[in-house]
């Protein structure tokens, strides 16, 4: 069975586990770097990106996470996870993992009282998708080769760059598990092609 990890340092871990399981895949909560070895894909959940970064550094996750991405296994970042994946963050000199070719801006829709729900069309995933945005970042620009999957109010909110998937909203907070399905399919494809190689 496809094994999908959820980085379990802080944030909406339980909800991602649920949407992986709803799609019939196996979910693993990843609390230590060694656990990255036997999973086919990794979700970086929503939470507080500054907190997650501190814990990533503390437990020596930085290099193992980069190597995981560079091995060709898919990674999916939601909200804070998207910020961790991005190659460029507005107002910061250095990115976190810097794996996905996008530029993001933190808290770009405002503070919590401006947090919202909106209906989106997400390419290859859903025509009508209810997305939950919480103190959300947005993708300021998609780099070369990065495909824009969804926009909200003229801002890019979901994109795919090779085996990296990212969105600025929280698919794990609703009962619509179609994005998790899309990511599990990415992991299956990668698993098959890495096995051939």
């Amino acid at each position: 069975m496809t094994k999908i990890g959820v980085l379990g340092l802080q944030g909406a871990v339980r909800e991602h586990v649920r949407s992986i399981e709803e799609n019939g895949a196996e979910a693993v909560v990843v609390k230590w770097p060694e656990q990255l070895e036997d999973i086919d894909g990794l979700i970086l959940p929503g939470g507080e990106s500054t907190t997650m970064r501190r814990l990533i550094d503390r437990y020596g996750f930085m290099e193992p996470l980069r190597q995981f991405g560079e091995s060709g296994r898919p990674m999916f970042g939601t909200c804070a996870g998207l910020i961790l994946l991005a190659s460029d963050i507005v107002g910061y000199d250095e990115p976190h993992l810097g794996l996905m070719n996008i530029k993001v801006e933190r808290n770009s829709f405002g503070r919590q009282k401006e947090s919202f729900e909106a209906d989106l069309s997400i390419k290859d995933v859903a025509e009508n998708y209810n997305a939950v945005f919480i103190r959300a970042p947005h993708i300021v620009s998609a780099g070369e080769g990065t495909e824009v999957l969804a926009e909200c109010d003229g801002r890019i909110v979901a994109a795919r760059d090779r085996h990296y998937l990212g969105c600025s909203f929280h698919p794990e907070l609703t009962d619509d598990h179609r994005i998790a399905r899309y990511f599990i399919d990415m992991a299956n494809e990668a698993k098959a092609s890495l096995a051939k190689a």
Binding site: G11, V13, R14, E15, V132, L173
Partner: peptide, 10 residues
């Protein structure tokens, strides 16, 4: 409620 979910484990 989602805002509080994001604080979990923290």
């Amino acid at each position: 409620r989602g805002m509080a979910e994001m604080q979990k484990g923290g």
